[in-house]
């Protein structure tokens, strides 16, 4: 079903449509929450809060708004509020390779799963070592693949600033990855 149709049904109170929407976006929302919270339990709680806000706010989406950037803005604000409430700067957690969260993939083989898990664990460790701004830029641009204009609107920054931040974040991440694993990219 097309997303616009699904959203229209959700706004009309169609419970099945809402459940379908939750199932379709649970992976993304949880990924954003985990990216900020760096803890599975916290990420789960925050992801639920995000969905509740989505549920209540669907009617307030402006005409022509793309759902993903709107959702990510809402998710980001929710995570930032939660972190502020916790009143601790969550240090970039060291994620052991075997405890990396499970990625949503299509029928990976066991070998692929273990390799992918190791690779993704490395990426999470590297992302965890970035500063807040760079980490956020990596999340929005590289992971969630938002357009630069959408990120600029989301963060309230000029387009040029977003572009240069994006480049800096990618470069910094690449340097961190090379330090953690010099064979990465070879």
């Amino acid at each position: 079903m097309e997303l616009e149709t699904l959203l229209a049904r959700c706004r009309r109170g169609d419970d099945l449509a809402w459940e379908a929407l939750v199932r379709q976006y649970q992976g993304r929302v949880y990924a954003v929450a985990y990216h900020f919270m760096r803890d599975r339990e916290e990420a789960r709680d925050v992801a639920q809060e995000i969905f509740i806000k989505i549920y209540r706010g669907l009617g307030s989406m402006r005409e022509g708004d793309r759902f993903l950037p709107w959702m990510l803005r809402l998710a980001r604000n929710c995570c930032v509020d939660r972190l502020r409430r916790l009143k601790v700067r969550t240090p970039p957690a060291e994620v052991p390779v075997d405890e990396a969260p499970q990625i949503v993939t299509a029928e990976p083989s066991p070998e692929d799963s273990s390799l992918a898990g190791a690779r993704h664990g490395l990426l999470y460790r590297a992302i965890g070592k970035l500063g807040d701004k760079n980490r956020e830029m990596i999340l929005l641009r590289e992971i969630q693949e938002l357009k630069l204009q959408e990120i600029a609107e989301l963060l309230g920054l000029p387009l040029g600033t977003v572009k240069s931040r994006s480049h800096r974040a990618r470069l910094e991440l690449a340097k961190v990855v090379r330090v953690l694993d010099p064979s990465y990219g070879a």
Binding site: G27, Y30, I103, T105, L123, I143, Q144, R170, L173
Partner: peptide, 14 residues
């Protein structure tokens, strides 16, 4: 390589 692999982190399974 990061540009190719990072989008795979877009969705996590709760």
């Amino acid at each position: 390589r990061l540009a190719a692999e990072l989008p795979q982190l877009a969705e996590l399974r709760p």
